[in-house]
Each structure stands twice: as C-alpha cells, then as structure tokens.
Design a protein around this nucleic acid. Structure first.
Lengths: 361, 361
DNA sequence: TTGAAAGCGCTAACAA
DNA sequence: TTGTTAGCGCTTTCAA
C-alpha cells in the first residue's frame, strides 16, 4: 500500500521553530483527512503531483504515458479529488447555488430539475437553498450561499433592493434572477411579464363573455402584479370591481375550496374566477363541483403554472402555462457561460407564457 | 479602506528562490480571489487572524473586547468567511448531500424540505444530487458528491451492492439510506417496510369484501416488493391472480388513465385497484369517473404516498400515508449527530406508515 | 511536456 | 486568553 500521512516539506524552507530545535524529528503532528490525495496518486504513478493534476484536468497537456500511469493509479487507489482544495486553489468552486421558495411547489421544481441536469452535464453541482422564511433566515441563507463561493447563483424571483441585494452585488458572483421581469436585474434575468399575464387573462375571459370576476390568490408579490393588471383591464371595460380573496401563504387545495365558499357568499353571481396557482384553482373547481355549479357554462376557472397532471383530469383545468424547463435551460446557459469566463451579451431573456384553454373556460 | 492583496510571508521562512535572488522584490505574482479575507478583518480589528477566527467560531473562547472588535470589523468590511478554505483546514465541510430520484416528485420533496430546514438550523447546507439516470451518470454523481467531502450523505432508497456502495463505504462519510428497510444498511437507515404495506393493503381490501384485484404500478424496486407481498396474501386467501399493469417510468396521471383502460379490457370484473403512487391512482380514478364506474361501490382505488392535496378532493383518495417529514427529521438528527462526532447507538429507525381510508375504498 | 515553488484562506496544534 | 507556526490538498506561476 501507499504510505500516507508521511511528513513532507519543501527542502529549502526551514522554519524558525525547526532550526531552533536542532532539526530533530520533533515536528508537530498534523491532521490529514485520511483520504487518498493527489500526492499519493502521483507517487504511485511515479510523477510529480502537478503532472497528476494535469493528467486529470487537462489530459491533452500531458504525454500519453503519463496519462496512462496516472489513470492507472487513480483506478487502483479509488482516488476522488478533493473539490474543496481544488476550488480554494483555483477560485473556481464548480458549484452553483439555487434559491427556491419551496421545494414542494412543483412549478419551481421543473426549473430546478432542468437546471440541475444541464449544470451536471457541464461539470457543475447544485446547492439548494430554501427561502421564504424570516428576514433573519433569509440573510443567513445568503451568507451561507456566498460563503461557499459558488460560481453562480440562481434566484427564483427578483431580489428587492436591500441588504441581500447589496451583498450579492458586492460578492461579484454571477446571478440569474428569474420568474419575473425588471429593467434593473442584479445581473442576468430569465423571466416573463406578470402584468402581461394579468392583462391577457382578463382579455381572454372578457372575450369569452364573462362579466363578473373574482380572484383567489396567495400573498405573493408577483400575484399582486398579475392581479393589478387584471383589475385594470376589467375596470377599463367598465366591468366593475374584482373581488379578491387572499389565502395568505396557504397555497393548498383546501384553501382554494374555502376561498370559493367566501367568493360565493360575497358575490353569488360571479362568472369567472382567476387563481394564482393551479392547486388553488383545483380547490375552487372541487368546491364548484361539490355545489353542482356547472363549469364552464355558469362559471369559468383559470389556474396558473400548468402543473403536469392538469391536462388529463376531468374536467381539465384551463391555465397559464409557464415553461419551467425553458427557464432552467436558459439560466444554465447564462451561468455556465459566465463561469467559463465567456462574455454574455444579452442579459435578459423573456421566455413568455401561454394561455392554455381547456375545459374550465 | 483595507489594503488587500498585500504580500505577506512569515518572516523566518525564506525560500530558496528568494535567497538566491538577493531578496529583491521579484516575487511571483499571486492570485487572490479579491474577496475580503479573515486576515483583512483581523488586521482591521488589530488582532491575529486566529483570534478573529476564534471570535467567529468559538466566541466564548475569546475576550469580550476582542469579540467586539472583530464583529465590528466584520460588519464594516462585509466579510463572509470562505467555507471552502475552512472546510479544507478543518476537514469539516458543513455540507450534507442528498440524492433524490426526482425533484418534481413531491413525496420525496417533503422529506428533502424537512431535512434541509433541520440541517440549515444546525449550520449545515444541502447539496442536491439527482439520480435515476444511466449507471454512468450515477457513478459520476457519486464521485461528484464524494469529491465535495460532505459531512454526511442522505440517500432516498437503499444502495444496491456494487461499485457505488463500495465507494461510499470506502469514503467513510456517514450515510443515511431511507424509504426502505434492510438488515444491512451501509451505515444508518430511516425507512419503513414495503412488504408490510403490501400485506396490510391486501388485508384491508379483502376485509372490505374485495375479491378481484389489479395493480397499476411503475418500475420501481420498492413497488415490486409491495406487489409481491400483496399478491402473496391474495393468493393465500385463494383469490387468484393479481393483474399487474406496469407503466414503466411514466408516473403520470395520464399513465394511470391508460393503465385503467388496460385493466378494464383484461379484467372487466375487477373490484379493487392498488396503485404505486397517488398520481397513478388519480389517473385510475379519473378514468373510472369518465366511464361512470362508481367508486367505491363497484370499485375500490388505493394510492400510495399521500400527496397533500388528496384529502380535499372529491372523492378523496384512500392511500398509504408515509410521513416524509418524520424521515427528514430523523435523518437530520442522525447526520448531525455523526457530523458533530456524537456516537449514534441506534442506526435503524422504522417510521412506519398508515393506511388512510377516505372515499375510494 | 514536466516539475519546483508558492500560496489559495482558513484552522489545528502548540507555546507563551 | 492570545499568538505563532504549519499545513489542509490542490492549482497557478514560473523555469527548465
């Protein structure tokens, strides 16, 4: 076997301590992790550590013989490079951080899954952070993320001006914000216009002959903007107020059902309900069916997000489709380009959306 | 401002190179990442770097004055510690890796979300890896994970003997396998018995008077074991064969609907269908409703996993509930204990399951 | 193409 | 309690 943990120092550099103690073998103990290192591999291959490093990282800069010997040694030892050491030495961590509000919300997870796949293929790994907690925790999350020195950061949503935004800016790490549009992103942006969605949905429903609107929505800054744009169009057409039911942070099917009960109590003659998520819409639909309100003849219902299984339900929910995979792929491209030092010319991409008309409108 | 990038070396250590070149200022250039370092903070605070380190990591080992000075300096500089450097020096990365088959399957994500939260509170971060691809990629994923030297690894499922298992074993990293039971885990285990589930579900349905069974399932080693145990009980009771429809890796609602069509074509008199996931069950239910087959009077349907919104649908799906949060919390406890060097006495935890009877049975 | 030297930014070990 | 020294495992820089 290899001798590991064997003490090594460069010959010409004698420390104060050592020279003072007459160069006897009274050196301090050191603490290796115990794992095989590049030095072990190099020694086994009979080359310098740096050659082993080159064989693994830039094989074309090394002779075929050296390459073979190193590869053999790696195989025999089961060597796995320590990426913390590599990252520290090269200032490239090959790590990308993604911050999502919640992992159980599949709208975002399609994006994360795509992002993860694309990054992995390019030799990067994903670190996951979960936001949506207190401001303190938010701050801690950002610190933890920056502390890892990722080569890029993916954010769901747009970071509002504040401490977090300044820190990110100061860190100099490439950032992709997403799921929204702004003329002033921190760095790069892949999103779509929520105001446009609000307007288009309003026009769509009005075009279907709907006149009395309600909105069932969670507390969410983006849902706000859709709601405002929606209400604007409705008002402009002289169709009065839109009843808004806010379910807070409870984006469940049950909340949708409960909200629907409130809608009916307040506005029995409602003929279209727009929801800020598919799950809420499913709740509204469930309650409507439970009350034998016929959809869509008496009532139109629209969701948001296009959760995969919606299309095959009966009735199939009409919704606004966001292509999460597009966002993930484009974000990966941005992040990888920047990590590899390539110039990114376009920094803002609008992936758009589409209204998917199915059985409930 | 601070002077950064200023060259520094310990006074007593003169290199060969330096002494040969007459100690003029012809030193090599070096490459800092450009970020604020602990040395910058220490200098600003007027203490040694190690004191600054102690102030941040073990504040109780440092005088109040030093602590205050360091904290001030951190605040003024916006210093964020480099965790790669810290991890390298201490052989503790404060990183935990989780490997999941898919992030869009919310059954697993409840566990990941809980795990992530518990780890974050304890000062650890989550790295996400996605399995379920080719064997090559699986191998690459494991290498990538081990290369980061995480303080622990969470695996959904049990790793079969093979290269991956050996590597993990050799790495010495604490591992939690999950979602299953085995007497021979790699290290620690938090799961439940799939055979027990198969048996209990069979007994439950037979107790309900059901006699003609079908199973709609994905290709999945754990679903296999549930199916085998289920079929055993059915056979033992003399109720003949269980029709098995395998949808492969397509765990969608649509697959459930299509599978239901095949079930009806082959066994029109089926009176109970057991599915390997809630989404498949929802598909079966959807198709049943589309064909006006009354549930549960003519047909019982059971899911698996207990996706959150199921309970509030009409009809509400009966299912097998797995407490993903329990798994996540227990796994976090295991992983943190081991990472902090505490002895873990029990290494296997059975979190169990429960049959949730709702409207479809 | 290969290698020696130096150092990335931090903490463990030891000494005072 | 504070500081000095050395080194974690790798890659960059420079020289041959």
């Amino acid at each position: 076997m290899l001798e590991r943990n064997e003490w090594h120092r460069s010959s010409a550099c004698l420390t104060h301590y050592e020279s003072m103690t007459d160069n006897t073998n009274t050196k301090r103990s050191r603490r290796t992790s115990g794992a095989i290192t590049l030095r072990d591999v190099a020694k086994l291959a009979g080359v310098a550590p740096i050659s082993a490093s080159r064989a693994l990282n830039t094989p074309h800069h090394v002779s075929p013989e050296v390459l073979q010997k190193v590869l053999d040694a790696v195989e025999r030892t089961g060597y796995v490079p320590n990426r913390m050491a590599g990252g520290l030495a090269s200032s490239r961590s090959r790590l990308i951080a993604a911050v999502v509000p919640s992992t159980v919300m599949s709208v975002f997870m399609e994006t994360v899954e795509t992002l993860n796949g694309a990054l992995f293929d390019a030799g990067y790994q994903l670190m996951l952070g979960q936001s949506g907690y207190s401001l303190d925790r938010e701050e801690a999350l950002l610190e933890a993320v920056i502390g890892r020195r990722p080569d890029g950061i993916f954010l769901t949503g747009i970071l509002q001006p504040g401490r977090g935004r300044s820190r990110l800016l100061a860190s100099g790490i490439p950032v992709v914000e997403s799921w929204d549009l702004t003329p002033t992103p921190i760095d790069m942006l892949v999103g779509f216009s929520h105001a446009d969605i609000g307007r288009e949905v309003a026009n769509f429903l009005i075009g279907k002959g709907r006149r009395k609107f309600a909105m069932v929505r969670a507390s969410d800054e983006r849902a706000d903007r859709r709601a405002v744009a929606f209400a604007e169009i409705v008002a402009k057409r002289g169709l009065g107020q839109v009843l808004e039911i806010n379910v807070g942070s409870s984006r469940t099917l049950r909340s949708g059902r409960e909200a629907m009960q409130r809608v009916l109590a307040e506005t029995p003659d409602v003929d279209a309900i727009v929801c800020s998520s598919d799950l809420l819409a499913l709740g509204v639909l469930t309650e409507a069916k439970a009350r034998s309100i016929s959809v869509p003849s008496r009532l139109s219902i629209m969701g948001f997000g296009d959760v995969p299984f919606l299309a095959d339900m009966v009735p199939a929910l009409s919704t606004v489709r966001i292509n999460g995979a597009d966002i993930g792929n484009q974000a990966a491209r941005f992040l990888i380009d920047r990590a590899e030092g390539r110039a990114v010319t376009t920094r803002i991409v609008d992936v758009g959306f589409s209204i998917v008309e199915r059985d409930t409108t």
